[in-house]
Computed example of a mutant assay.
Amino acid sequence: KQFHLNEMMSFGKIPREHQKAVGGLLEKLFRCFVGADAALVEVNPLVMTSAGDAIALDAKVSLDENALYRHPEFSKLVDNRDLPKQERAAKDLGLGNFVALDGYVGVIGNGAGLTMSTLDVVAEAGGKPANFLDIGGGANAGVMANAIGVILSDRKVKSLMVNIFGGITRGDEVAKGILAAIDKLGDVKVPIVVRLDGPNAEEGRAILQKAAHPKIIPAATMLDAAAKAVELAKKRKAS
């Protein structure tokens, strides 16, 4: 809107004779920001020519990775070659919210806030998280299986804590994904502590109970899950 541009001109102390040119550039920047689903569009420096034109001499654009599915034309700009092996694998599998850490307790959560809280309770229980992995809302069995596969590819991981508090993530899908990952990976030696709550959580717990896999350990609460995951990890580290 024009009044927004006027406010920015005033705040930036843009001389009146340059306001038309700068305003036109700002309008284009805004359209770029919205149209590209960008997280950041920055121009620095911006110069005025003797002819009165506003020119961006340099710029920085950061794209929102969560919106890349709407922009297939940006795929050629993606370069994951410099990422660590695990992070590159996570990106390739569509697990965008993965960050490798230097601990030994793997962590999977749904939602950034819950996953951050899970890292905190693992640390509070005396352990060190091996990663941050938020599988997001509505994750299905395939996503869960891929997530477990990526985390267990790290030999430093001595236990894995799966902490799901469902909103739109269904507990039965999580359980199926855990079993699918174990089936795909074969001889899983890392204990997987699972806390499920929310939609279809009872069904999910029933699926895991029926499977009776020796490496799947149920937990009633997040604190209970963290304590078990840390205890099991320390036992494996000591052995």
Rank of each mutant, 00 (worst) to 15 (best):
K1T: 11
K1S: 15
F3S: 13
H4P: 00
L5A: 03
N6D: 14
N6T: 12
E7L: 09
M8D: 01
M9T: 09
M9L: 01
S10E: 12
I14N: 01
I14C: 04
E17V: 10
H18N: 15
Q19V: 05
K20G: 01
A21K: 12
A21R: 12
V22Y: 06
G24I: 03
L26R: 02
E27W: 02
K28I: 07
L29N: 01
F30P: 00
R31Y: 12
G35D: 06
G35Y: 10
A39C: 14
A39K: 07
N44S: 09
P45G: 04
P45E: 03
P45N: 07
L46Q: 11
V47T: 05
A51H: 11
D53L: 03
D53G: 00
A54E: 08
A56L: 05
A56C: 11
L57I: 14
L57R: 10
V61L: 13
S62R: 10
D64M: 09
D64K: 09
E65A: 13
E65L: 08
L68T: 12
Y69L: 09
Y69A: 06
E73C: 07
K76N: 06
L77V: 11
V78Y: 06
D79K: 05
L83T: 01
Q86L: 15
R88D: 03
D92R: 04
L93P: 06
L95M: 03
L95C: 13
N97S: 09
F98V: 04
Y104F: 13
V105Q: 10
V107Y: 04
N110E: 06
A112S: 13
G113K: 14
L114Y: 09
T115D: 07
M116R: 07
S117W: 00
T118M: 02
A123D: 02
E124A: 11
E124G: 02
A125G: 02
G126M: 09
K128M: 08
F132Q: 09
I135C: 03
G137F: 10
A141W: 00
A141K: 11
V143Q: 02
M144S: 04
A145G: 05
A145T: 04
R155W: 00
K156E: 07
S159A: 15
N163Q: 09
N163G: 03
I164K: 01
G171F: 09
A175K: 08
K176S: 15
G177I: 05
G177K: 10
A181F: 08
K189H: 13
P191V: 08
V193K: 10
V193R: 05
G198Y: 10
G198C: 13
A201C: 04
G204D: 11
G204Y: 12
R205L: 11
R205C: 10
Q209R: 12
K210Y: 02
A211V: 03
H213R: 12
H213F: 13
H213T: 01
P214Q: 13
P218G: 03
A219W: 05
L223S: 11
D224M: 12
A225Q: 14
A226L: 07
A227L: 12
K228W: 08
A229D: 05
A233C: 11
A233S: 15
K234P: 00
K235E: 15
R236I: 13
K237I: 14
